[in-house]
């Protein structure tokens, strides 16, 4: 199997999860799509020659960098906008990202046929702090090891364990009445 085919299979295997991870954070379909495409291009152009085993942590590292950049820019834009246009001075500290319209709501098909469990989980994952969200999605959903998740998140393995543990604890707490 050629490396090109292997690369195609790898990207096809992660693209849906990558898109969802981006969407959880940026809550904008087009922005999430751009982030995933950028991550794909960077992986292909710069890291395709790396061993296949390294593609996943490298790809998610690129993806998380792009998500973080996008989130920061959106937050900065929101703050600037609030400073100049907000009528209520107290609202200048509002995190507009948090109060932005739900990305799923913008996609009518998103809501159709989705089970309650998925909806509730999505909502709670979306509320997780960024680092906890990253650790949870990469460990629990993508199945990355602690070491690979640490590489992707640019932090220590201890930090990954802490973020992941807090995320699982929080999700279990808020979902237990509905789930278990």
């Amino acid at each position: 199997m050629s490396e090109r085919v292997a690369l195609n299979q790898f990207l096809a295997g992660v693209e849906k999860r990558a898109y969802k991870m981006a969407l959880f954070r940026v809550r904008d379909v087009d922005e999430a799509m751009d982030i995933v495409q950028d991550a794909m291009m960077i992986l292909v152009r710069k890291y395709a020659s790396k061993p296949e085993a390294q593609w996943a942590p490298l790809f998610y590292r690129i993806l998380q960098n792009r998500i973080t950049d996008s989130h920061r820019k959106a937050t900065l834009r929101a703050r600037l906008f609030s400073m100049f246009y907000s009528e209520d001075p107290d609202e200048t500290t509002t995190d507009v990202i948090q109060s932005a319209p739900d990305g799923y709501a913008a996609e009518p098909d998103f809501q159709v046929g989705i089970q309650d469990a998925t909806e509730k989980l999505n909502a709670e994952v979306e509320r997780l702090p960024m680092r906890q969200q990253q650790a949870f999605l990469m460990r629990a959903w993508e199945g990355l090891s602690v070491a690979d998740t640490a590489l992707a998140m640019r932090c220590s393995q201890g930090s990954v364990k802490t973020h992941y543990s807090r995320a699982v604890h929080r999700l279990r707490e808020v979902l237990k009445e509905d789930w278990l």
């Binding site: 990207l11 849906k16 799509m33 996609e107 089970q115 998925t118």
Partner: peptide, 19 residues
Amino acid sequence: ALEAERLDDEIVERLAAAR
């Protein structure tokens, strides 16, 4: 639950095009 969610066909096609 996360895997069960089916993406819109348009999103799937856009992801394939991006790839």
